[in-house]
Each structure stands twice: as C-alpha cells, then as structure tokens.
Design a protein around this nucleic acid. Structure first.
Lengths: 250, 250
DNA sequence: ACAAAAGTGTTACCCTTACACCCATGT
DNA sequence: ACATGGGTGTAAGGGTAACACTTTTGT
C-alpha cells in the first residue's frame, strides 16, 4: 500500500469514529448511459489498481437515504439523483482482505454491513471526482469491467438484475436519458438493460402506445444521416403508468 | 410501562452491548397461509397492547442472513424457513417514541437501522413463542391487522408489495402451502396475494401448463363436498421455471 | 446515392378473459 | 338434491414476434 493512503487512513480513523455510525456503510452502483453503452461509476484507492464502488458512511443523525444522496453528491456534484435501495450486504468476511497491513482498530477495518443503492443519472450531468481516499473516479463500461475489489463485482451484478426487473416499475428511461432523446437511443437503452435485441417497428409501436412520450418539433442534426426526431418524456403520464407497472399481466 | 418489562430491559441492556453489533436490527414479516387467509406473525411487548414484528440483533461475528434465521427459529421453532431480504429501514426518527421513560444509554433505545426480511412458512409448521421481552406471539390476519408499533405497519405493507411482485420469481406457493394441497387452495393463495379474483378454469390451465405441479393419487376427504384432488410441487421444475420468471414478457 | 430514421402493414401465434357446459362425488 | 371440484370448449381480444415495404431526409 502506498505510504500516502496509509497516512490518510490513520489520520481519518479517529475522526470517523466520532462522526459516523459504526459497522454501517453505503455503496452505490451509479449507472450512466451515453447513448451507446451503459456505464458504472467506479473509483480506485490511492495507489491501488483495483476498482471499487463509490461509498461512504452514515452520519450519527442522518437518514440512510440522505447519506446516499450526500455521498453521491460528493462524487458527482449532482443533487437529486434517482436512487433505489436494492439490497444490504452483511456477510462477515466480505471485506476481510482489505487493509490487512493496518492496525486492527482502524475505522476502515471494521466489519461493515453495507446498504447498496443503484443510481440512475444522465451521463453528462456528472463530473466524476475523487475523494480523500481515491486517486481516480471514472465511468467504466458495464460490458467490460476492470478488476474490482471485495464483493463489489457481485453487487454490480445484483444491481443490474434489479435494474432489469425494475424496468417496468421505475422511471429508468427518464433518469438515464437526456431530456431530449431519440427513439433509437431509447431502444438501445432497453436492449442494453435487457441484454437482447428488440425489433425496431414493434418497439416504436409499443412505446407510442404507452403514451409516455412526447414528440418534439425538433430533430437531432449533425449526425451522418437523416436527423432523428427528438422526444421527451411526459413525466405525468410516465409516473402514472408506473403506478401499476407498464405491462403487468396478472 | 410494566415494571417487569422495565427490569428486563435494564438487565439485558449491558449484556447486549457486548454481544451484538450496535445500531443494527433485523425485523421479519413472517407470512403464513392457512388455506383461507394470509397471516402475519406478530408479538407484543410485555404489558403493551400494540403489536410489533418479531426481530432481533446481529451477533458480532454473524452473517445477517444467519441472524435472520436464528431469530426466526427462536420465535417459531422452525429451521430452514424461506427468507427474502427486501429493504433496509434507516430513518433517524423511526423509533423515537419507544421506551421514552427509560435512560438514554439503554441498548434498546439506540438509533436502529433495521434490515427487513419477509419469510414464508407453512402455517402449521410454526409454534409461535414469546421471547424475554414479549408476552404474546401470534398469527394475525393481514386483512385486519391490530394496532402496530413504530413503522412496522409500513414494513408489512412493503413486504406485501414485494411478495406480490415476487410471485413469479420466488417459490411462494411452495413455501406457504403444505406439501399436499388442492387446486382451490392454490388459487385462493394467489387471489389473496394479488388481491383480485381469478377465473377458476383459466387458473387451472395456467398452472397445469407451467408443469410445476404433480397430481397425487389422493383426495382430501372429510370436507362437506366432493373430495378435491391433492397436488404437490415438482420442486425441480418449479425452481427451473423460476430461473427466468414464470411469465415474463420482454 | 446512400444510409439511417420514421412510420405503417401484415400475419401468425400465444396468452388472457370471460362464459359455458358437463361430469364426478361426498354428504 | 346440492354444492363443490375437475376438466374442457370456445370466441373475442390484445400483445408479441418477425418481416416487409414505403417514405423522409442529412450528408
């Protein structure tokens, strides 16, 4: 471990014991879509090559949802990001291989029970920034993730599964796409999340039928070919539709 | 508050501080189905009229899933109950009105972040039993719940929503019904969970088509009318079918 | 001209919904 | 006899899947 990270951990340890609830952490799987691929926001500890989820601790007098928002704001600069809590991880050995060379009573070496959220954000609304423990924070494509610490790889996979299952219940498109987007972009997003290709014409009709889109009187110019029409979500109809799920059968 | 509960709390407080992780609790919404109605297992503190979810704390060296199983076994005598973690509750004020007349440093008066599970169990496989803090533990019908403490009413409602949404992804029938059951019982269970009535003939065909049931060469005798056929689940096919959900459309 | 985008048509197929009918059987 | 359960038939309707064809339009 780098001397620098070593010193920072020791310096922060005592401070943290007074500020945060012990044994509890929050990790977020932040999804971003750039029109092409789905990305996850990852950071890496100073001097380490492995990546990890952005996370943090819960202040002694703070709702856990507020913690998640606060931590995310520190990493992205963005407020009001869509967050959905999906699972809490509490295996005893889940971080046993971290910080092995540091003293046992180090704050960061406790046993942690981690409450995991997935976040959805417009790709360009975010400025990834490091915190005091990390020297990088960047988007990584879901399709080819780098090496990842501890159980965080599994957490990302769980988040993806929940995202997929929530597609008809949560405003996924609304939060991952820019305010104005094209039908091919929306379809690409669905294809990525569902991991299957969809028929264009059928997708167009299905989306149109839901009545959650509003076609704008604009097109996206500058592409190589015909300028596609721009749409935005009718948030009122969208949220109303989600109340019962977009396509339930029972 | 009764003197008895008062004394028990004070006596347990110091002991608990050495045994359990602070600030973390586990609550379970235990569902049981008696062929007629869906029930939830609730307990009440000694001398209190309000009810609460059975819960407990996490040992310092214990996986949270193991905690949930251990706590449930203490309340029901049953092992290997089906458990599904569905949400973690961490609002700061969620238990602020409990134990107001007791000292601030009482173990039970901490701020708790509670990891909630729902459990599914065969109604008759359970012997509700009290713990040291409670003087009753009993099944209560979901349709008409008694008065409930803190945010536990909301937790039950959330559990029901998750149960409903999981109906096609988790072995709900398998865990709530006795090993041998009739088609009307299965249908009744679905109707209760989905809160809507279903057409009998169509339900029969749908279930048959899934290929997850095995018809036994027995009938349930003793009823007032024709003895209904008994079925059991083909667990192999059932679990295989759940891998992809029983009826997904995308 | 070319390639992408938009919009529509068509067909087969499956599942759902709703009703209906008949048979079996325990009291 | 009667109520419940079991099993099947059917017709309408809606959504899906797969394919095809046309038109539009930016470079």
């Amino acid at each position: 471990m780098s001397q620098k990270l070593h010193d920072i951990l020791l310096a922060e340890s005592e401070k943290n014991k007074d500020t945060y609830l012990p044994h509890i952490s929050i990790d977020s799987v932040v999804f971003g879509f750039n029109g092409e691929n789905l990305h996850v926001l990852l950071t890496s500890l100073i001097g380490k090559s492995q990546w990890m989820l952005p996370g943090g601790y819960v202040l002694k007098e703070e709702d856990i949802n507020s913690s998640a928002h606060r931590i995310l704001k520190e990493r992205t600069g963005a407020e009001n990001i869509f967050l959905s809590q999906f699972k809490t991880y509490g295996a005893t050995q889940r971080s046993e291989d971290a910080f092995t060379e540091l003293p046992e009573d180090l704050w960061h070496k406790q046993r942690y029970i981690s409450i995991a959220y997935y976040a959805l954000t417009r790709y360009d609304a975010v400025n990834p920034r490091t915190d005091k423990y990390s020297d990088s924070c960047a988007w990584q494509p879901v399709e080819q993730l780098p090496e990842i610490m501890m159980d965080h790889k599994g957490i990302i996979e769980d988040a993806l599964m929940h995202l997929r299952r929530d597609l008809n219940y949560k405003p996924v498109g609304l939060n991952l796409l820019p305010q104005k987007f094209t039908m091919p972009e929306l379809q690409r997003l669905y294809e990525i999340i569902l991991d299957k290709s969809l028929n264009r014409g059928n997708f167009y009709r299905k989306m149109t039928r839901y009545n959650i889109l509003e076609k704008l009187n604009e097109t996206r110019r500058g592409g190589a070919h015909k300028a596609p029409d721009l749409y935005s979500f009718n948030t009122e109809n969208y949220n109303a539709a989600l109340e019962n799920g977009l396509q339930e059968s029972w």
